[in-house]
Design a binder for these strands. Sequence first.
DNA 1: AGCCGCTTGTGAACGCAGGCACAAAGTCGC
DNA 2: GCGACTTTGTGCCTGCGTTCACAAGCGGCT
Lengths: 271, 271
Amino acid sequence: MVAEPGQGDEVVTTPAEPPAVPHPADEPAVRERARAIPEAAVARLAIYLRALTELSEQGVGTVSSEELSIAAGVNSAKLRKDLSYIGSYGTRGVGYDVGVLIGQVERILGLTRNHSVAVVGIGNLGHALANYNGFPGRGFPVTALFDVDPDLIGVPVGGIPVDHIDDIPQVVADRDITIGVIATPPSAAQEVCDRLVSAGVQCILNFAPVVLQVPDHVEVRKVDLAVEMQILSFHVARRADEGSTESTAAGPDGAVNGTGMSEVDGMVMRP
Amino acid sequence: MVAEPGQGDEVVTTPAEPPAVPHPADEPAVRERARAIPEAAVARLAIYLRALTELSEQGVGTVSSEELSIAAGVNSAKLRKDLSYIGSYGTRGVGYDVGVLIGQVERILGLTRNHSVAVVGIGNLGHALANYNGFPGRGFPVTALFDVDPDLIGVPVGGIPVDHIDDIPQVVADRDITIGVIATPPSAAQEVCDRLVSAGVQCILNFAPVVLQVPDHVEVRKVDLAVEMQILSFHVARRADEGSTESTAAGPDGAVNGTGMSEVDGMVMRP
DNA sequence: AGCCGCTTGTGAACGCAGGCACAAAGTCGC
DNA sequence: GCGACTTTGTGCCTGCGTTCACAAGCGGCT
Ligand SMILES: NC(=O)c1ccc[n+]([C@@H]2O[C@H](COP(=O)([O-])OP(=O)(O)OC[C@H]3O[C@@H](n4cnc5c(N)ncnc54)[C@H](O)[C@@H]3O)[C@@H](O)[C@H]2O)c1
Ligand SMILES: NC(=O)c1ccc[n+]([C@@H]2O[C@H](COP(=O)([O-])OP(=O)(O)OC[C@H]3O[C@@H](n4cnc5c(N)ncnc54)[C@H](O)[C@@H]3O)[C@@H](O)[C@H]2O)c1
């Protein structure tokens, strides 16, 4: 049971010679996946959406790829390419209509409907998530909370009473839960995950530091703070080794403030 | 890279092994940089470390790349390549000595020393982070808390009294803070970040959904839950479109596939 | 002692993502 | 109505990261 996606170990499909022989003709077996959006692009679309929403609230009606790319902290060419994956909604010589683009990005991201969220494990983190109002504001209302602790059952957190995890099947069905958030101790994560999946949840956001085993049709995203810190630690260590270079005085003003972006260090693109 | 989510990629150097790479480089800037560990590999090393630590606690003394790769949820070839970045510590025909490997990974990740963490913004999330005992257990003790709310100043959270953000310079220096965690509202994030950087903090973990502007020598990692959810939403929507083909309800022990992104997964639960 | 099988370490191919640069396309001004 | 300017959309090239496949190396078995 090797944790490995598709292929078995030795697929003898193409007996063709591995040695380099530039094969001209043959098409690379075009899948029926006509519109495949790179995963990395999807993540950025979410960032663009936040920047666009902010612009919209400011009354901005049109934005160029250059402006938007600065707000999102990415390269403008990359932004245009990302947007091209979802269609051609820009106007050459003008830019993009903010409203239209918001609609299209939301369509692609599946945000035209609400996605009810269930949080399992109402401890430190679960409480914070339940009380967070950034999710409902973005189409992800938290509508169910679960725990095993008898003292918590029935207690409202963030306005929602905690249910027992045995009620997962029922509640998930009733409230049309599409996203399950796991905030239990690591030891309980897999079991909780299994229960959620059995109840029909196809999206899991996991905060427990374990690898979850799920069927292929279930999507898992993981947030691992310890790993994030260790990556930071690595960079510190590396920096300490390399001779310290001169430190350029940072710019006095920052100004451009946008929204999230990938976890790159603070490099700002040039206009 | 991201999480989640996409991932800033940046080659980084490590002070590990001799150069010894007879590569017919056509690189213009051939620095004497020894070897570069891909950012993605660094993230996975943290995962391997957790798996190795667990194995060690179970008394396992030796592990093969195959076993470890399963525990970490990755391809075994990838695991070997990742480990090769930090040196050759395996024994052919046998595998890796768990203790030795833990030591080497910790060395590369800079975990031979403790990294004191400061959390800024002791609200919902800040409380959870301050109370979390998973950090101290991994060499990241939270030793300082900051906020602006007068009602919070002096109140101990997770055993540590909250300081006012004006005390950042002093406290950061006194307690040798190396990592700053931003858990303030988005509007305050940039200012808090600037203060931390001014105080000498070179690593930032940001939970606020904004792009932080920092000097080049500061490393920023971002955790953006809304983006994670939107990525999940995207996959639901996409599945709904083309999903009408076949619904493979087969595989009970699904592969830990998940995102194809740079984000990596944690480890697997022991049976 | 020598062979055999297992596992590592890595060269090389492949595929994806990023970024440049430009043609296409539309607008604005005159 | 036409030209010049602006900005999009994308072809192509580059480089990184992943994966395959195998020779080298090591321990154990006979
Ligand atoms: N607190 C943080 O800031 C933080 C940070 C990073 C990661 N995490 C991870 O998030 C998870 C939760 O952390 P926490 O600090 O909130 O822990 P916690 O101990 O405060 O809360 C865990 C909650 O899960 C409940 N629980 C236990 N077993 C359960 C089960 N089988 N089904 C349902 N609920 C169950 C407990 O009753 C408790 O309420 C952990 O895996 C932790 O590693 C937390
Ligand atoms: N709560 C969550 O589960 C969650 C989830 C995802 C993202 N976030 C993000 O994390 C951040 C914090 O969320 P929260 O729910 O804890 O918010 P919160 O409002 O509960 O807490 C914010 C805290 O920051 C403090 N603060 C405000 N301005 C400050 C300043 N200038 N300097 C120092 N402290 C300041 C406030 O006094 C408060 O204690 C937000 O950016 C939010 O978007 C939170």
